[in-house]
């Protein structure tokens, strides 16, 4: 069970809805992923597409997590969060404040300011953050309900570039740690969970896969496998071999 702000989810995989070629592909991937929470972005009304996304998410029975994707300042992110609360009747927000167009890396100063403001306004804040253990701690200190460090830049599929930092974040955090961004394939999701993450948010790796439904199943299985492996406790790494078969009773052919 993944518990965030007293709400529990059986699945530790959160599905980002961005990047799916069609709503049908999203609709098919939701049950395949087993995700019980899915993100949406807030964008200007377009008469042609209005409504159907929320219908798909409602049919799938998933909890809708709006985000502030595309915001570059705390001010814009706070306004977007307020709009999402009004539009979707939720006080949950996945907070994104981007600092650079090319890498889409978070702007730490704006992110922290926005997080503090939104917590003050009663939001359940899930911040997309860099893999900086100090920033993660600061975000927790201002009252964020989880921290969502990146593995590598959004949509890059570069996996987890700094597992050491992720380990440091996990060691210190008392709120759930959810890996957000960078997953390229199933093994990346398994590694995130083995490092002690409580969940994984995945969009592009599923949405842009050749077979999104197949990849949704694969990543769901990887999240589960990684979580079980973490709980089971891996063996320590050693430089040299340790025989798994005893020498005792070995036949002598000399």
């Amino acid at each position: 069970m993944l518990t965030i702000a007293a709400r529990t989810f059986r699945s530790r995989l959160i599905l980002g809805t961005g990047g799916f070629p069609t709503l049908q592909a999203l609709a098919a991937s939701l049950p395949a992923s087993g995700a019980e929470m899915a993100t949406v972005a807030m964008r200007r009304v377009d008469a042609a597409t209005r409504g159907s996304l929320l219908d798909v998410l409602e049919v799938a029975g998933v909890f809708v997590l709006p985000n502030t994707a595309g915001c570059y300042t705390a001010r814009d992110a706070v306004t977007t969060a307020r709009l999402a609360r009004e539009a979707l009747d939720t006080n949950w927000i996945k907070l994104e404040v981007i600092g650079d167009e090319r890498t889409l890396l978070p702007d730490p100063a704006e992110l922290l300011a926005a997080a503090e403001q939104l917590v003050d306004e009663g939001f359940v804040v899930l911040p997309y953050t860099s893999d900086d253990p100090v920033l993660a701690r600061r975000l927790e200190d201002v009252g964020c309900a989880a921290v969502m460090p990146l593995g590598s830049p959004i949509g890059s599929g570069m996996g987890i570039r700094n597992p050491y930092n992720l380990g440091l974040i996990r060691e210190r955090a008392t709120v759930p740690v959810i890996l957000d961004a960078g997953i390229g394939t199933a093994s990346d999701a398994a590694l995130a969970m083995e490092l002690g993450c409580d969940g994984v948010l995945c969009a592009s790796a599923i949405a842009r896969a050749e077979d999104p439904v197949g990849m949704a199943r694969a990543i769901a299985a990887a999240v589960e496998a990684g979580h079980r492996a973490r709980r089971a406790g891996r063996i320590p790494r050693r430089l040299y071999a340790t025989a798994s078969t005893p020498d005792q009773g070995l036949a002598d052919f000399s």
Binding site: G18, A41, P66, L88, E96
Partner: peptide, 25 residues
Amino acid sequence: PRSQWSEFALDRDARVEVVTAMQGG
């Protein structure tokens, strides 16, 4: 807020944003 939509009158230089949920994130 939705409850004020039918009363809230716009100034002549108002900037209005109307948004909804789209695929993303």
